[in-house]
């Protein structure tokens, strides 16, 4: 960390005496958290979830473990819990994509519709696989992939054991491989674990 940008933990520590300083945590991480939430729920619900994520974080800043330099895993954990309140929205959109090939989540951001066509089969299978996963498995899988968190960070974010993260990722991957099997048979032999 350079002098001009203290670690998140230092900012949070200072925000306990000077609450307005917490805005810096928002400035640093809100763009990424919002992208993650949009990928899960779409634009419509993202504003609520993101605002609520940072308000919750602000209220809980007194309990933040200052040994953790980056606040991202913590924020991802809060966001994931709040996304969980919109399970039906998430499932409805994944089901729509799986059935029709139209993804309401990415629609506002895509202009080059031709490029999407070739990938459609994979996307529809992925959507079908994701919606079929138990919510806890989907949460873990998407924190590891979209969130880029390590297994340890994912465990901290969700308050579960690292072993649980590992087994959920493995099982979720197996299910996705199954679902993608038709599209790409070589995926069946890939057993490598990249995180942890």
């Amino acid at each position: 960390m350079s002098e001009t940008s203290p670690a998140d933990s230092a900012v949070i520590a200072r925000s306990r005496q000077e609450p307005e300083v917490f805005a810096e945590i928002f400035r640093r991480h809100a763009p990424e958290i919002k992208r993650f939430v949009i990928r899960r729920l779409g634009l419509d619900d993202a504003e609520d979830v993101v605002a609520e994520t940072f308000l919750t974080a602000f209220r809980q800043r007194g309990r933040y473990d200052l040994a953790r330099h980056s606040a991202l895993p913590w924020l991802y954990g809060i966001a994931t819990n709040l996304v969980g309140r919109h399970k039906r929205t998430e499932a409805r959109q994944l089901n729509l994509l799986a059935r029709t090939g139209v993804d309401p989540v990415t629609e506002p951001f895509t202009s080059r519709s031709d490029e999407r066509l070739s990938a459609q089969a994979v996307q529809r299978n992925l959507a079908a696989a994701l919606v079929a996963l138990p919510a806890g498995h989907r949460d873990v899988l998407l924190l590891v992939t979209w969130g880029g968190l390590t297994y340890t960070e994912t465990a901290e974010a969700l308050g579960i054991r690292v072993g649980t993260v590992r087994s959920r990722v493995n099982r979720a991957r197996a299910k996705i491989r199954e679902e993608l099997g038709g599209a790409d048979p070589t995926a069946l032999v890939n057993e490598e674990v990249r995180h942890g």
Partner: peptide, 11 residues
């Protein structure tokens, strides 16, 4: 293709 890579690409 690795399913994690495909998932990363998803959306």
């Amino acid at each position: 293709m690795d399913e994690l890579v495909q998932l990363n690409d998803f959306r």
